Every structure is written in C-alpha cells, then in structure tokens.
Simulated scan of single mutants.
Amino acid sequence: MRNPEARAPRADASRNRKQLLDAATRVFASSEALPSLREVAREAGVGIATLYRHFPTREDLVAAIYSDQVERLTGGARDLLAEVPPSEALRRWMDLFGGWVASKSGMLDTLLAMIESGDIAHAQTHSELVGAIEDILRAGESVGDLRGDVAAEDIAASLIGIFSVAPIPEHASRAGRLLDILLNGIRPRL
C-alpha cells in the first residue's frame, strides 16, 4: 500500500504554491511595512485558506520565499555560466544578488528573527551563495577573464557593502557603478 504522504502534489496545488511564492516575493519586496497575508493571497489570485494550507504561518511563508530565492540565485549562477563568459556572468549575478537583497524589505524583521532563532540556517545560505561565487570565479580563472587571487568571501562582503550604501531600487544607478568598479578590480591586470 502506498504512503499517502509520499504522493506528489496535484498540479493545481503546485501551481498555487508557485503563484503564492511569486506573489509573496513581489508583495514583500514592494512593501516597506509588514504586508498582510490577505494581500499576498489577493496578489496570487487565491483565497486566504489556500495560502494557509500551503503556509500555515507567516514564518513558513518567509522561510519558503527565502529558500526559493536562494535556490534561484545559486541556480542563476550556473545558468549564467552556461550562457555568457564568466566575467559577464559574475556582473549579471551581482545584479541578481542586488535584487535578492532588495526583495527582503517587507520581510526583514521576520527574517532576522528567524535567523536569530535558528529557524533559518543563515550559515548554510551563506555557504551556498559563496559557493555560487566560487564557481564563477573558478570558471573565470580557467579562461583568463577573472583573477585567481580573489576570494569569494571578499566578493560576498563587497556586495553586502555596496547594497548597504546603495540600496536598490532607489540607488540602482549608483549600485551599478559600484558593481562595475568591483568587477574591474576582479579582472586580470593587463
């Protein structure tokens, strides 16, 4: 006899979950204050009961958004490396990272509390993101368009600094200039 918990979710349930994650990401990113879960459900085009069926608490929703975004960000590094040269992949990935940071505004307090309580493994996320940067740096070193003496941890720290002084979207042009300066410093010296 099959275990009912082992069944794959129905197609409509998977679609609803994805709609909720996408809508919640947009709502949280565009909100300066903590948005209501009803607003998230409305944006997703589903009822509040559907939201609660997938995410019983606000913390469950925030954790799912966070996990989904980290997965997209690390997967984005691989996708970019398959499409463009490593230095261009790194620059585009920096923009993805900036968008990821910017999307946290409406959920920052909840997210920080969850990290502090251990509900979200911040160290694992940091490791995954640094790993994505390392993959790009290694690829760049192998083709000669990125220096081999740059640590991924230093790139991560630089990105956090840049997006702290030039948060997106209000300072996108300044952030872009700073990211270009950072990338130029990572390219091999001529």
Rank of each mutant, 00 (worst) to 15 (best):
D109I: 07
I136V: 15
Q19E: 10
A33P: 00
A49P: 01
G45L: 01
I65R: 05
G99N: 14
E134N: 09
G106P: 03
L137E: 07
G45H: 03
R138M: 06
D12V: 12
F28I: 09
A166D: 07
G75D: 03
R15A: 15
N184L: 11
P188Q: 03
A23N: 00
F55C: 06
L179N: 09
R2P: 13
A152F: 11
S173Y: 08
L108T: 12
L73F: 06
H122S: 10
A132V: 04
G47C: 02
L137P: 08
S127R: 14
N16T: 05
S158P: 04
A13P: 01
R72H: 11
R92T: 08
V101E: 04
W100E: 04
E71F: 08
L90P: 10
E39R: 15
M94Q: 08
E32D: 11
D60G: 11
N3W: 05
I48M: 11
A123G: 12
A113R: 14
A64G: 09
N16Q: 15
V143N: 08
S164Y: 09
E59H: 13
E141M: 10
G140Y: 02
P85K: 07
Q69P: 01
A63L: 07
E88H: 10
R92D: 04
V165G: 07
I133C: 06
F28H: 11
I186T: 09
I168Y: 12
D180G: 14
S67H: 14
E88Q: 15
R174S: 14
Y66L: 03
D68T: 12
L129F: 04
L61I: 05
L112P: 01
A49M: 13
E83K: 15
A89K: 09
D145F: 04
D60Q: 07
G144V: 13
A6Y: 00
K104V: 06
L21D: 00
L129W: 02
G185H: 03
F163Y: 15
A63I: 01
A123K: 10
G176M: 07
L178N: 06
A121S: 09
A11D: 12
A77Q: 00
M114T: 03
A121P: 01
I160Q: 11
V143A: 00
R7I: 07
E5M: 14
P35N: 05
G148R: 09
R78W: 00
A139M: 02
E88R: 15
R91Q: 13
L96R: 14
H122V: 02
A121Q: 10
V46K: 05
